[in-house]
Computed example of a mutant assay.
Amino acid sequence: MNLLLNLSIFFFAVIIHEYAHGWVAWKLGDSTARFMGRLTLNPLAHIDPIGTIFLPLILLITHSPVLFGWAKPVPVDFFNLKNPKQGMIWVGLAGPVANILFAIALSLLLKIPLLLASYLAVSVVTTAIMANLVLAVFNLLPIPPLDGSRVMMGLLPYNLSVEYAKIEPYGFIIIFALLWMNAINTIIWPVVISLARLLGVNFGM
C-alpha cells in the first residue's frame, strides 16, 4: 500500500483519538477544546508536524513494524472537570478506547463477503485496524505526556502524582530513547497482535 494512503489512514486514527479526548472532557465539564475549535474532525486542527507527519513518515520509510505518533494535544483544563482526579482518568482513556472501538467496528467490515472480494479494501481495512490498535496501545504507555500517564496520575495519591508529573519535560526524550533501542516496538507489537487476533485479524509477526 502506498505511503500517502498509509499516512492518511494513520492520521484519521489520530483525529478520532484526539476528538474523543475533547468530547469526554466537554461532557465532564471542560469546554476548553470546544472553545478553541479543537472539538472537530477537521484534520487541520490536529496536525502536529513531528508526531503526525515526520515520525510516522520516518517509520514508514524505515519499514518499522509499528506505526505510531501523536497529534497536537487537545487542550484540557482538568480543574474545570466536575471531578478533576477521576476525570483525568476518563479523559486519558477516551482516546485509546475510541481507537479500540473503531478497530472493533472495522473488524466487522471484514465479515462482509463483498468487501473480502477486494484485496485493496481488505488491505485498507486491515491497515486501519492496525493503526488504531497501535495508537491505542502506544498512548497507554505510562510515559508523560502520553494518555497512560494521565490515567496513572489520576490513580496515584496526590503527592505521588505531583512527583510523577515532573517526568513530563523529559517524556519525549524517554520515548525517542526507547524507540532508538527498539524497546517500544518490542512492547507494543505483541499486544497489538494479541488484540488483533481477538478481533479475528491476523497481521503475522
Rank of each mutant, 00 (worst) to 15 (best):
I53N: 03
N182V: 00
Q86W: 11
N202H: 07
F102S: 14
L93I: 15
T126H: 03
F176S: 11
L155V: 02
N185G: 15
A131W: 01
I100Y: 06
G204L: 04
A25T: 08
A103R: 07
V134C: 08
L141R: 09
G51E: 03
A183R: 03
I112E: 12
G171W: 04
N80Y: 05
F10P: 14
H17A: 02
K82E: 14
L155K: 00
V137I: 14
R197E: 09
K72L: 12
A117H: 11
F172N: 09
G37H: 04
V124G: 02
M205R: 13
I50D: 08
R38W: 14
N83I: 09
I58A: 10
T52R: 09
A128M: 08
L156A: 07
L199P: 04
P84T: 02
I89L: 02
I184D: 13
V14I: 10
R150E: 03
I174Q: 11
S31R: 14
G22K: 03
E18F: 09
F35Y: 10
L155H: 01
L4Q: 13
L160V: 01
T40I: 02
K166P: 14
P75H: 01
M88T: 09
I184L: 15
I187D: 05
V134M: 07
F11A: 15
F172A: 07
S8D: 11
D147V: 15
I9D: 10
P56F: 03
F68W: 15
L60Y: 10
V137N: 06
S161C: 05
L179Q: 12
V191L: 12
L156K: 05
I184T: 00
L60I: 12
I184F: 14
S31I: 09
K27H: 02
A196R: 07
L195Y: 02
L3R: 10
F79P: 00
A33E: 10
M36E: 13
W90R: 03
T126N: 07
T52L: 06
A103I: 11
L7V: 04
L93R: 05
V14D: 00
D77K: 00
M1I: 07
N99S: 05
L115S: 02
A165M: 13
